[in-house]
Design a protein around this nucleic acid. Structure first.
Lengths: 198, 198
DNA sequence: GTCTATACCTCGATAGAC
DNA sequence: GTCTATCGAGGTATAGAC
């Protein structure tokens, strides 16, 4: 077990696991099939029986990642019972996730930067992921605004979209600066959004 | 003149012009030296007398682009004499620029997505560019807050950093969605920042 | 399904003539 | 400075044995 190959699961699972790691860390175009199959411990022939092209694998990678991230995020949020804490901690969760990724940023926006064609399946997948992210934020905001009468003057969609832009802005700034300061500022922004003095 | 080669300037200028266009539109790793020299109308030998490596060219590209964007942006802002209009129109300028780029987004964040090493010269250049962008926003905000006594309760750095996060968030959302709606939301955010009812 | 072997191309980079 | 020719490596993808 001295080699750093992935040992568990079927050949397809191991390929996908290796690709997921390498695409995210190194980038899509910078990662070759050879490195993926070395890491997965399969042959080139096996690779092409499971995935027709590299783009196929890229799409499967984003699909899996979208599912993992959305499910994981929803689970973490569900564990926070208080709507106000959930509203605030969403930002903290994103901050910690960003730190734990080594400030590598969002897999979907990073991939979009490498695939210029806005109509490609990969770009459509990225858009789909952002729509899911946006929906999660909307739910969090809606739960908060319904939890207390003092929020009755606020519009759910407006607050949610502002929250979304702030989150994405914090994410990209954090990736560029390799630092968490944008999330500290983002927390002030989302507090101000619901009428708190900051 | 049937070929789409770049005809003006020295060999170095033509190489840089071709690279600037191709790196931005296609991405860094997806663009090969061969395509650049074809477009520039020079030979491979000539290329390597002017640039030691591809990364050298990549860095020169970002350098030139940083200079062009910063200068261009500062000039457009300088033409707007009213601080309040300048504060609002900054967002509009970014929106129009984003549309005119075909929603390709920021050259520096796109490049950062392809170069994982946060300490590489290219990533440092990206960070430098964002610092410049941030400084421009700070100047715009400062001019506004000093222009009227009604803003005396506001902190320049706080408003500027919130503006920055909103801009970057609108930029990346706009790139993902291939649409200008994030900038429409961003305008509301920056109006709210200076105490306007939205 | 999985392997080895390989076809064919393009990559970044260099050598040497002029 | 600029050209042509070419290097070795690595790119994606396929063929055929087991």
């Amino acid at each position: 077990m001295s080699k750093s190959t992935i040992q568990r699961g079927t050949a397809r699972d191991r390929i996908l696991a290796a690709a997921s790691d390498l695409f995210y860390r190194q980038g899509y175009n910078a990662t070759g099939i050879q490195q993926i199959i070395d890491e997965a411990g399969v042959s080139k022939g096996t690779f092409y029986t499971h995935f027709k092209t590299k783009d196929d694998l890229g799409l499967a990678y984003l699909n899996q990642r979208n599912h993992e991230e959305s499910t994981g995020l929803r689970q973490m949020l569900a564990e926070i019972k208080d709507p106000y804490q959930r509203y605030l901690n969403f930002n903290t969760i994103m901050k910690e996730w960003m730190k734990s990724s080594g400030y590598r940023g969002c897999a979907f926006s990073n991939m979009s930067a490498e695939v210029p064609d806005g109509n490609s399946p990969i770009r459509k997948m990225a858009k789909f992921h952002y729509e899911g992210f946006r929906a999660i934020i909307r739910d969090v905001v809606e739960d908060l605004l319904k939890s207390d009468a003092k929020y009755k003057g606020l519009n759910v969609q407006y607050v949610a979209d502002q929250y979304m832009i702030t989150q994405v802005g914090a994410l990209l700034n954090s990736e560029i600066y390799q630092d968490e300061w944008p999330y500290v500022h983002a927390e002030k922004a989302i507090r101000a959004l619901i009428g708190e003095k900051v």
